[in-house]
Design a protein around this nucleic acid. Structure first.
Lengths: 152, 152
DNA sequence: GGCATGACGGTTATGCCATAACATGATGTT
DNA sequence: AACATCATGTTATGGCATAACCGTCATGCC
């Protein structure tokens, strides 16, 4: 995410939280900023390391509490298969996303594909299962890296 | 999985491995048995605990090595969102499954839904992404538990 | 037989991920 | 000021996963 987008997302997050009566405190804002500024997903301990630049002696619970808050607010996502977190690219509305995770360059792209959601919902109806949180993560190779492999 | 199914799956695994030139050793077979006999997913350390009944002083690498082998052979699946493993219900052919994970009773059911796979493949084609391993895990409440909540 | 090779597993140690439990501080309300 | 509530600091611990090294055993080759 570039600087302009970052400003926009942070502003949006601010507004969203105010509207909901949720408090986007300094700590939480820092974690959100770090995640959005990174072009790769970050683990909680990577966030912790980067926080040392601005915070005295941060500890794991500090980070995890901020992450919990941001997850609840839908401002970030957790990637279960990587034990890592990414900033959400469109937190304006509640949603569930799918993630394309490139094992080559480490890039992760978030998509919101209606057809996939539909097919999941159809399966739910057929089985009577009530989904609270769908996890859809595709591990593989992104288009760019796949191309490199072919030419290289 | 009941005893009859267990026997069948183990026999099938035996045959499958022989066909592939892979060795289903005693350790590996034990881990597969434990997973298939359990009605819930097991973490590596839960498997470790249960192995103490038959094996002297087992250590984590023993279990993880067996799990790696079984994953490669498609005889078990890893549930990323639970850090746990389950026996595969139909290892005869290579496949990718989706999992319905009930947060209430802990039960996990494996399904192989063509429509979901289709929608994932369509999205892949649109983005140029090459998926090696799709992770689809629906966290929620199974039909049985949902019913209980309504009546209770 | 003697011996290289490679897969398997034992053993020890360690690193990363995540949370429990309790203490302290900040914020808003009456 | 007194209080309730939420957020954070602090210390310790538990769970998940792997690195690195070494012994063992089966197999194939000379």
């Amino acid at each position: 995410m570039n600087k302009k987008q970052l400003t926009k997302v942070l502003g949006g997050a601010e507004k969203l939280c105010r509207k909901r009566g949720a408090r986007l405190t300094a700590r939480r804002r820092t974690v959100l900023e770090l995640l959005c500024a990174s072009d790769k997903p970050l683990s909680a301990y990577e966030i912790l390391d980067r926080m040392r630049a601005t915070t005295r002696n941060p500890a794991p619970p500090t980070v995890y509490r901020a992450l919990d808050f941001l997850l609840e607010q839908g401002l970030i996502h957790k990637l279960e298969s990587l034990h890592a977190f990414v900033g959400c690219t469109h937190p304006e509305h509640p949603h569930s996303s799918q993630f394309l995770i490139c094992g080559d360059c480490g890039e992760v792209s978030e998509m919101e594909n209606e057809a996939i959601l539909q097919s999941l919902q159809t399966a739910e109806r057929a089985t009577g299962f009530k989904t609270r949180h769908p996890v859809v993560e595709l591990l593989g190779t992104c288009a760019q890296c796949a191309e490199k492999h072919q030419s290289g």
